[in-house]
Design a protein around this nucleic acid. Sequence first.
DNA 1: GCTTTACGTAAAGTTTACTTTACTTTATAC
DNA 2: GTATAAAGTAAAGTAAACTTTACGTAAAGC
Lengths: 69, 69
Amino acid sequence: MKNYVRDKRMAFGMTQDELSEKLDVSRQTIISLEKGKYNPSINLAFKLSRLFTCTIEDLFIYEEEDKDV
Amino acid sequence: MKNYVRDKRMAFGMTQDELSEKLDVSRQTIISLEKGKYNPSINLAFKLSRLFTCTIEDLFIYEEEDKDV
DNA sequence: GCTTTACGTAAAGTTTACTTTACTTTATAC
DNA sequence: GTATAAAGTAAAGTAAACTTTACGTAAAGC
């Protein structure tokens, strides 16, 4: 899932470390998120959208998985 | 996290079993979700909002955790 | 050239979302 | 009264989100 966390963070002039503290997650979590290593939990997605004053849909781009069924 | 999955499902006249198949998750997942046993992944949240033609914010009510820090 | 700041990687460990199986309950319908 | 459909519980297992620690790199400032 694509996301705009990095863009938003930078628009807010924050470091990864600052962001991680505000969201109460580890810096690793932010790094991995921005790198697209994994998807956030819905809790983290909500926290991010609140902080950046946007919707989850604005921040994360969902594309249907190619269901191999 | 509160959610309106049950309401939406019923509004769409679906059984838990039908919903689980459409979303490609187990029936247990739907039961537990509706019962509030755990929060959905952001993927599942997106799937649900797409199916019910609403936003994630419409379907799930986020309340800041009382951070014990 | 050393220090500090910001970003990055790797890997092992914990927590939680989700699956699977198996069995229970309630209601409807023949 | 038993068969079937829909909802539920419990518990053990797997997968993925997130943490923790420790170390690497590049740029900026002195």
